[in-house]
Nucleic acid binder design. Structure first.
Lengths: 333, 333
DNA sequence: CTGTTAGCGCATTCAG
DNA sequence: CTGAATGCGCTAACAG
């Protein structure tokens, strides 16, 4: 049944026929115990409910299956404890390698990753790189994408640009130094996107205003609150950059509640394109991430290491796509 | 390490300490080979990229984990062959039970399900019931929900109501008989929703018009085409019922391309609520499915069978919620 | 309580 | 080519 050893064609037929008739299935677990390999990839994403990760997972499983590997995916719901537990489950189930979109925001939170690698099981990071972790990472050009978006806004005249979900600091951020410190303790993607935002402002000589940067817990509701608060400012933003799907829907709620129209009253740009963004009226200008390719490349890197290759860990950066639609216009006056 | 047998507290401490220091992890595979149980649930959904299924999976894994079960989820991408292969993987990995949202549209396509049950591994269906398969099923009141939606439309005066994604028949459907035959060969959810639509029309004495029912392959693009075609009719629909997320975005594309405004020119109701639906302008009237509870209840039923309970298979029906927002209005004149 | 032994279902090695 | 024996890492049953 395992397709090894020598058998006469005739015996093989008889065995196969008997197996078929009896409904026999080889026990993959016993096989793994015996061989030491499971031909299975473990994946733990931050939130499988996020269409972005669903796309990445699709990319992963398509290419891993093409190589004869199963994939078992777990979701940590952006919770570090759950992430560790999930990795434990994968290690116990003896997967041959692990793909991880980690909720860790600092090197000390990434111990479990290093430990897994120390045990000899290869890990590759996806979507979120991690400093000081010697693992491959497959990501997009977050900083660039963010900068390009803000530059687009500045190019048509905006100078007050809100940033709808940034560092998840608990305390308010007032100075640039505090902001950078908070960013350093945030998810890599959030941090990068914030830096890109700052890059563009700096290049244009626009002063950074802490009131225009959302800080704290990130949910659609808090995004709506933060956006609403910005819009009530004496000098409110004329444009909003939303760094995630829920940030955008939250911002849209606030914009509508304030009785504002986009792009006339306020311009909008968001990360993570979707069908909905395209059918909004007007349609939303968005930054599209290559989810499938992200997943595919990640799986390729991991598979290579499983096959024994052992190059220097590297950060692979894929390009996002800026989709101009109808949610950007010059500010009033 | 397995927490069985008798050990002195002191020895236990020494063993645990040694295990800790050595980084020892019990091999879950070997354990399963030995005990015959894996404490893991297998799930194969039709499309993990669909937020609806992502929610169901979340419900499943939350409640199964609470019972000490891991869950490994696979996506069939609505493909029957992949579904069978996925179930094979799960059986090989010796999961203790399987949850399935099947792509099967007829009893003969459901053999693999019966086979799994014959081998002694419990299966419970979710989202889609299957006639002639003696398995538990956890679903929503699709037919009722659909009927209520159409009744709402009729109540405000609509008589020409388009049904944006119905039976996936390859040939056009002209008569009511053909329609029912096509429905019988469609996904259970699609079929139920179509019946509910027909129920409401019948009750109101409105004649069924095959031109107002989309038939064929179901993608956002084909939905847009179908809707566009309906809108070009000499006697076009004044309302559209969209039975899925992509059907709604497709319909919206067509509505916009035709230069129509909702709800003034055309009313809209859809299945599967989302943040986007709520922030559309006007916001969309939608039918919300209790995804989490659907998943949770499904897991409960399966867990019960794994624990040895063996009641008569039953179809458990949960209630959907009709969320009235701003996409329904009386037809013009 | 402790130490030993057999056995789970497979892959692999080694005589015939 | 075939059959039997050994071991993978674990649980379970059994003497001491």
């Amino acid at each position: 049944m395992g397709n090894y050893g020598y058998v006469s064609p005739e015996l093989r037929e008889r065995v196969l026929a008997a197996a078929e008739k009896l409904g026999y299935r080889a026990n993959a677990l016993a096989r793994s115990v015996s061989t030491g390999v499971s031909h299975t990839l473990g994946v733990v994403v931050a939130d499988i409910g996020n269409p972005f990760f669903a796309g990445v997972v699709r990319g992963i499983s398509d290419t891993s299956r093409a190589s004869g590997f199963d994939t078992i995916v777990l979701s940590s719901h952006e919770d570090l404890a759950e992430e560790k537990a999930s990795m434990g489950v994968l290690l116990d189930k003896r997967v041959d390698g692990i793909i991880l979109a980690s909720a860790a925001v600092s090197p000390k939170e990434a111990k479990h990753i290093q430990e897994a690698m120390d045990v000899g099981i290869p890990v590759v990071l996806v979507d979120r790189a991690l400093e000081h972790v010697a693992a491959d990472a497959v990501v997009i050009d977050n900083r660039d994408a963010s900068r390009r978006a803000v530059e687009t806004l500045i190019a048509v005249g905006h100078r007050r640009i809100g940033f709808v979900w940034g560092p998840s600091s608990t305390r308010p951020v007032a100075t640039r130094r505090e902001l950078l410190a908070a960013a350093a303790k945030s998810l890599w993607t959030d941090s990068e996107r914030l830096r890109g935002y700052l890059d563009a402002l700096d290049d244009a000589g626009i002063a950074f205003d802490p009131n225009l940067i959302m800080v704290g817990v990130k949910t659609e509701a808090t995004a709506a609150d933060a956006a609403a608060q910005m819009l009530r400012l004496p000098d409110p933003p004329t444009a909003l950059l939303c760094t995630e799907n829920d940030a955008m829907t939250g911002a849209l709620r606030a914009v509508r509640a304030a009785g504002l129209k986009y792009p006339g009253d306020i311009s909008l740009i968001g990360f993570d394109d979707s069908s909905w963004a395209a059918v909004m009226d007007p349609p939303l200008t968005m930054i599209e991430q290559p989810m499938l390719r992200l997943g595919a490349l990640t799986a390729e890197r991991l598979l290579a290491r499983i096959k024994g290759e052992d190059p220097e860990p590297e950060v692979h950066t894929l390009e996002s796509r800026f989709i101009e639609r109808g949610s950007v216009a010059p500010p009033r006056h």
